[in-house]
Amino acid sequence: MSADENYTGLSYTKLNIMRYLALFITSFIFWLLLTWSVEPGSVVVGLAVAGITTFFFGKYYFKNVAKFIQLHRYYWFIIYLFIFIWECIKANFDVAYRVLHPKMPIKPGIVRVPLTLKSPFARAMLANSITMTPGTIAVDIVKDNIYVHWIYISSEDPVEYTAKVSGRFEDYIKKIFD
């Protein structure tokens, strides 16, 4: 952890406790959604399971949980969700066209796209978004580059394909997770 990551002004001990607490609340809400009942027995079991989860996996949770209470991130997240769903539906019709066309218009290859995002979770979300959008699937992240398998390479110019592959999402993900 570098020093500039801790921009909230809290000490590391406090941040660490908040991290465990955030994982506890998240997993307990997940349990409540799954069981969908507030009977005492079910709630007690849920608290126990959330405690065990927190004990074992707390150290793998987000480094900076103060992002949870910054409300403008949720606003951008909702906008991003609609764009993402629209791109998903487009991706499916794109795949359907390529699969059902008798000649199969494919021109696959792996291209290297530079990343500007820094935090690991934001990078993972960008890779997930790239996988669900038309014609691309993320293969690997090495240092500051993401390798993308593309089913129809429409241009050989790096700047142009960077804009096509990650330009749609990078701004939003920067605002939400980074």
């Binding site: 795949v95 699969v99 199969m104 699937i137």
Partner: peptide, 23 residues
């Protein structure tokens, strides 16, 4: 159905993965 047809028709692993996962 589109995804599974892609799984059958497309030529190599990466393309199959692509069509199948998305659809």
């Amino acid at each position: 159905i589109f995804g599974c047809v892609g799984l059958l028709r497309l030529p190599d692993v990466y393309n199959r993965l692509q069509s199948a996962t998305k659809c």
